[in-house]
Design a protein around this nucleic acid. Structure first.
Lengths: 162, 162
DNA sequence: GTGGAATAAGTGAGCCCTCAACTACGCTGC
DNA sequence: GCAGCGTAGTTGAGGGCTCACTTATTCCAC
């Protein structure tokens, strides 16, 4: 048993996967897990920055003034508020991000990228991009890259905006 | 700055991503994160079984006698030995898996799926497959599904077997 | 058969994430 | 001007994972 199978333990008959779907699903799942894992490990090993931290630094660096509201930052990093709050606390300890009360909303906080944080990001970016090239783009033909984008954007329309 | 950029802080010039690659990478990353997250959450919510546990139960159920050596099980689940050891301990507490010394190698342990574990899997499988359908296959054309498989298997040849 | 390397698995400290409170502020209507 | 509700963010307990280390067994050369 797994995602295919012949026994249904429910009222509605489950729409089991056929052999082709099974292969597609497993290939997607394993490759996604391995790729995410590999990129994270290499980044940590070579720069000491986990991918989750990296994403936060990137999001901040992409704004005009290197700062974002906590909730906006959480959305851009596909992170829960709580997770982001913990993560920013840890980044503060490293001196890479600083918190600042939001001028136009007393409830809000701004996460601000520090000089040190920007420097850490600059050091990590080449490592990260090299990983993405080596393990993704270098392995795929232009047609496959186009398909990756197409499938990804299709799924995002379903799963996203949120 | 991010995975594109114009400043290189290294000897070797980083091979930055162009705009198209950037889009492909982000689409892939976000869709992968959202899909994995969504499937796990739905499975936990409706069955109380996290996806990592589910994968272990599936791997065991797919063998002839519903048992596997710990290290073989770890490989099939793309899990570290340590992680699997912890996970199997938790599954033992739920009564879904049982450990048993390996007859032909005194160092080895066999993880054995129990009746209760199999029943839990049978209950969870329809929920899981429905999630995979709803969030993956129902969203994609047959051509896109073929591309997913093709890309996944290509990446696996690079990332996998280990 | 014995010493030593290799292999199988488990353990525990520490980090990260989730979930469910909780605090603090803002907004509206009366 | 304050009651009540919604929103922004934080907190802490608890679970899961990683990493380095430990224990137990097997393999092999001699």
């Amino acid at each position: 048993m797994s995602t295919h199978g012949t026994t249904a333990a429910q009222g509605e008959q489950p729409r089991w996967l056929d052999a082709e779907e099974q292969r597609a699903w497993r290939a997607w799942l394993y490759s996604a897990q391995l790729l995410l894992d590999r990129l994270d490990r290499e980044l940590v090993r070579e720069t000491g920055i986990p991918h989750t931290y990296y994403e936060i630094l990137v999001a901040l660096s992409e704004t005009e003034d290197h700062m974002l509201r906590m909730s906006e930052l959480a959305d851009r990093c596909l992170s829960s508020r709580s997770r982001l709050s913990h993560a920013v606390s840890r980044l503060e300890e490293r001196g890479w991000v600083r918190r600042q009360v939001c001028p136009d909303d007393g409830r809000g906080q701004l996460a601000v990228l520090t000089e040190e944080g920007f420097a850490a990001l600059e050091a990590a970016a080449p490592v990260h991009v090299e990983g993405v090239r080596a393990h993704l783009f270098d392995q795929l033909s232009p047609e496959q890259v186009a398909a990756v984008r197409d499938v990804g954007e299709t799924l995002l329309r379903h799963l996203g905006p949120r």
